[in-house]
């Protein structure tokens, strides 16, 4: 039986009838074709499916779709504003923090939630907070550096 879901995704109000046993990631990918959110394990163990819901980074792969009711969802597709990359995206590209790229959208969303909450994280905090994101390509070092650089830029932007 389908249930009515009203939610906001990347600023767009969406109303759909959905199977409540569906996971949020499948709704985003299969129904809305927002395929930037990836599935790496579908068990909440790799972070590739990370999105931001009501300001918090969450794993969309183990989340029942109905949890999105009345929520504000931000996916990787909603991060670039007016053709301008978010500083985290930009630093990931410049800093070699991307290789195969499959973990990248999740990592960037996780990093955004982190920096929204803690604009000046230490290296250790970055590592600890983002350790739910698995990357098999980079060795993580360049990701850590990119997040710290983005944090610095975001602080500067705020000061300006």
């Amino acid at each position: 039986m389908k249930e009515r879901l009203v939610t906001t995704v990347n600023g767009r109000r969406i109303e759909r009838y959905v199977d409540p046993s569906m996971r949020l990631v499948d709704f985003l990918r299969d129904e809305l074709l927002l395929t930037g959110t990836k599935i790496g394990c579908k068990q909440g163990e790799c972070g590739a499916c990370t999105i931001i819901m009501n300001g918090t980074a969450v794993l969309s792969c183990i989340m029942p779709v109905m949890k999105a009711m009345d929520a504000e969802i931000l996916t990787i597709e909603g991060l670039e504003k007016d053709g301008k990359l978010h500083p985290i995206q930009d630093e990931f590209i410049k800093g070699g923090a991307i290789q195969c790229g499959f973990c990248t959208p999740g990592f960037i969303m996780g990093a955004k939630a982190l920096l929204d909450e803690n604009p000046s994280p230490t290296s250790e905090e970055v590592r600890e907070e983002l350790s739910g994101h698995i990357c098999r390509c980079t060795g993580y070092k360049k990701i850590e550096d990119a997040v710290l650089k983005a944090a610095e830029r975001l602080r500067e932007e705020k000061d300006d």
């Binding site: 990918r29 299969d30 074709l33 927002l34 395929t35 930037g36 959110t37 990836k38 599935i39 996916t75 990787i76 597709e77 991060l79 670039e80 990359l85 995206q89 930009d90 990931f92 590209i93 410049k94 070699g96 991307i98 790229g101 499959f102 990248t104 959208p105 960037i108």
Partner: peptide
């Protein structure tokens, strides 16, 4: 030179397609 990867934009924005993103 450290030229930023050409696929960086696709991958950082979620536009880049992988096999799992193919819907025919």
């Amino acid at each position: 030179k450290n030229i930023p990867r050409l696929d960086g934009y696709d991958k950082a924005t979620g536009r880049g397609l992988y096999t799992t993103d193919i819907y025919l």
